[in-house]
Simulated scan of single mutants.
Amino acid sequence: MSTPPQSPQPADQPAPQPQHPQQPAVPPQPTAYPYPHPQSPPAGAFHAQPTLVGQPVPGQPQPQPGNPYIPQHQYGPVPPPPPAAGGAGRAVLWAAVGAVVASAAWGAGVLLVGGKSDSADLRGYSAPSNLCSSADYSSFKDEYTENDSSPTHTALKDEALDESYCSLSLKKPGSTYADAYLTLQLDLHKKTDPAPEFTATWKNYGESHTGYDVDSVEGIGDEAYLVSHDTTNGSSSGSRYATLAVRDGWVTYTMAYSTYLSSYDEDKDPPALTDVSDWLKTDAKATLRQLRD
């Protein structure tokens, strides 16, 4: 008995494509730069670029920084979805976000050394060229004892804004890859009072970002807000974020912590957000005192 001929595949019908599991969505995260992205000027506008110190050259391939994670909200890139558990997954995550950090740091664009103005209320602050070595983050060192040997820091001085930025990887004892990340940013606004936009951005953060808790913090600067987000819910996956944003006169300072549970080994748990919040408050107060000396 002969086998009936098979119907040929229509020439205009595309071959079926393999299906890939969809990665879990990662919610947007608070950023240390809460103002519109300055990398997109109006059409036809050209502006001279300020002199940068330690800043990547646009359009050139950049080396991967040792601690590349920078949390961003709606004005910046969203962090990638959490990696698979284990060292290989962590390596893929931190390598991927390295490019995000390089572009985000360039986009935020203004980092610096102190500035003074007759009208700006800078309260005696100066913006150091290396915020990583000038800031206090000692509260995190009991949990994360391994030092970051190559933290990312950038600095720039501009007539309108001086800014210092630092990104640190946080490692528990014996960890090969980062278990969490800490980013710090200090801005000296020398031409414009940041108070209205600062309050609108941080006080109302929960209204435009579902699932975020916003608490007003007393005793730090003129106003401060703690923004936090926890998607772990007692499971073995999810993420934890906490950002403390402070305004003192025309100076703003942010400290942001972030971690994925998949970045931790199974026998290790990340600290509770209540502990992280206390560490952020303690270290922000200490840093602001130091930067006024």
Rank of each mutant, 00 (worst) to 15 (best):
P30E: 06
T31C: 08
T31W: 01
T31A: 09
T31K: 00
T31D: 12
A32W: 05
Y33G: 03
Y33F: 15
Y35A: 09
H37Y: 11
S40A: 14
S40M: 14
P42H: 13
P42F: 10
P42L: 13
A43E: 11
G44V: 13
A45T: 08
F46C: 06
A48D: 15
Q49K: 03
P50G: 02
L52F: 07
P56I: 01
P56A: 00
V57Q: 15
V57N: 03
P58R: 06
G59N: 04
Q60L: 13
Q62W: 08
Q62N: 09
Q62H: 04
Q62V: 10
G66Q: 06
Y69C: 00
P71A: 06
Q72M: 07
H73V: 02
Q74H: 10
G76S: 01
V78K: 14
P79Q: 05
P79M: 07
P80Y: 11
P81I: 03
P82L: 12
P83T: 05
A84R: 12
A84M: 15
A85R: 15
G86E: 02
G86P: 11
G87C: 09
A88I: 12
A88K: 12
A88V: 13
R90T: 11
A91L: 11
A91S: 12
L93R: 10
L93S: 10
W94Y: 15
A95E: 06
A95C: 00
A96N: 13
V97L: 05
A99Q: 03
V100Q: 14
S103N: 11
A104R: 03
A105Y: 12
W106I: 04
G107H: 10
A108F: 05
A108V: 04
G109M: 11
V110F: 13
L111M: 10
L111H: 11
L112A: 08
V113K: 07
V113T: 07
G114N: 15
S117L: 03
S119I: 12
S119D: 13
A120Q: 08
L122S: 05
L122E: 12
R123C: 04
R123S: 02
Y125E: 01
S126F: 13
S126P: 00
S126E: 08
S126H: 14
A127G: 08
A127C: 07
N130P: 04
L131I: 08
L131P: 09
C132H: 01
C132I: 07
C132D: 01
S134R: 05
A135E: 14
A135G: 13
D136K: 01
D136H: 10
D136E: 08
Y137E: 04
Y137P: 02
S139T: 07
S139V: 10
F140N: 00
F140C: 00
E143M: 09
Y144G: 04
E146Y: 00
E146H: 00
N147D: 12
P151L: 09
P151C: 04
T152N: 07
H153K: 02
L156C: 02
K157V: 04
E159C: 02
A160V: 13
A160G: 14
A160Q: 14
L161F: 01
L161R: 03
E163Y: 01
E163D: 11
E163N: 05
S164Y: 02
S164F: 05
Y165S: 00
Y165L: 02
C166A: 03
K171I: 03
G174Q: 10
G174F: 12
S175N: 11
S175D: 15
